[in-house]
Design a protein around this nucleic acid. Structure first.
Lengths: 195, 195
DNA sequence: CGCATTATTTAAACTAGTTTAAGATTAATG
DNA sequence: CATTAATCTTAAACTAGTTTAAATAATGCG
């Protein structure tokens, strides 16, 4: 049972008795998501919070012209949801799509609220997770403002080699905020340097 | 007593009895910060979380070469802290400096932990605040990836006219991730359009 | 397998934004 | 108030990254 991963995840953040942990886990349900499937589309209300057991997801924003920008990728041990939409039950600004056959552990909005009531300690758990997320987004912004495209590319593929390996250049480009053509140039440049 | 602002802030997020609210407020202490003073420097451990009653702060990151990048500005009704440093008591990656004579309502790390214990509901309060912050940072990143420098400039000065009014071009440029010279160009372009 | 679609590479022309430098304005300071 | 320092503007030269386009390679699919 791979759900062990999520148990470990929670225990790394906060101390939980075995019974608390199991009560938390009981609200999460496994869901298989085939490659290509959208688990959330712009405009829909995000009814779930998902922990990735297997596979990989793309969380992206698209403008009116259909131009898509990848916000982040979520592989094993990451979370997928539209926080704003889930928390405030408002239409989602983002799309979430499986990039590979994937498995999620999902919790519904209703169950999440139940969880907070049943085990108040989970408020703390998710508060701390959220604090980490804020710090990470701040660092991402700083990287975008201080590093060149090539440096950001390097950072991405060395920090997340497993995720990068399953992505197309086009997706990496979108994540980095540059064009796929320029990713090609960067890759060529790096290939020359190494030889 | 301007602390009323903070009471309103909290009540807009979560329902609190008058006594709960006052117990929360009792942990916050007013602190005057003269213009130019650093309330946190890179490498120090952030021991406080501050709510801005008056004035304005600059939260920034500086690299080894002394190049400074403004992450955000915090004026009235905003928060100043280094979340990662405060939460995990690790050295701060950021500087926080008053851009004007300012007044903070501060809570220490120890008092914050006390607060969480005394009034568990505050875990929820700060979790929700943190969720809003994550959503805001995501939107900021999307703007950086989809808008031109001029569009970002427009967005900033129309969304935060009061803050923008008290900032130099240099600071706005740093926040937007462009040079001060280019801000000059943008301003000229806009001045010509209007006439 | 064979076809169609999509991703990748390459290159030339282009542009948004940078760099450098100098002069003009404004603000801080003794 | 005078002087120093800092900010702001302008402009010319430059560069990182884009756009367009065409050719090639890889992939999905009936």
């Amino acid at each position: 049972m791979q759900a062990e991963l999520l148990r470990t995840y929670f225990l790394n953040i906060i101390a939980l008795t075995p019974s608390e942990l199991e009560r938390i886990m009981s609200h999460y349900h496994e869901r298989k998501v085939p490659k290509g499937e959208f688990v959330l589309r712009q405009g829909e209300i995000c009814g779930f919070e998902g922990y990735v057991l297997e596979g990989c997801f793309k969380i992206s924003a698209s403008d009116a012209a259909g131009m898509e920008k990848v916000l982040y990728f979520a592989a094993q041990d990451w979370w997928v949801m539209e926080l704003d939409s889930f928390t405030n039950q408002i239409p989602s600004k983002l799309d979430i799509q499986a990039l590979a056959d994937s498995v999620l552990l999902e919790i519904s909005k209703a169950d999440k609220e139940k969880l907070y009531k049943e085990i108040p300690k989970t408020e703390r758990l998710f508060r701390i997770m959220s604090h980490k997320a804020v710090a990470a987004w701040q660092q991402r912004l700083i990287r975008n403002h201080t590093m060149t495209a090539e440096q950001r590319y390097d950072h991405f593929i060395t920090t997340y080699p497993d995720i990068a390996a399953m992505l197309t250049n086009k997706l990496i480009a979108s994540y980095l905020g540059i064009t796929q053509e320029f990713v090609s140039v960067i890759r060529k440049r790096r290939a020359l340097k190494k030889s």
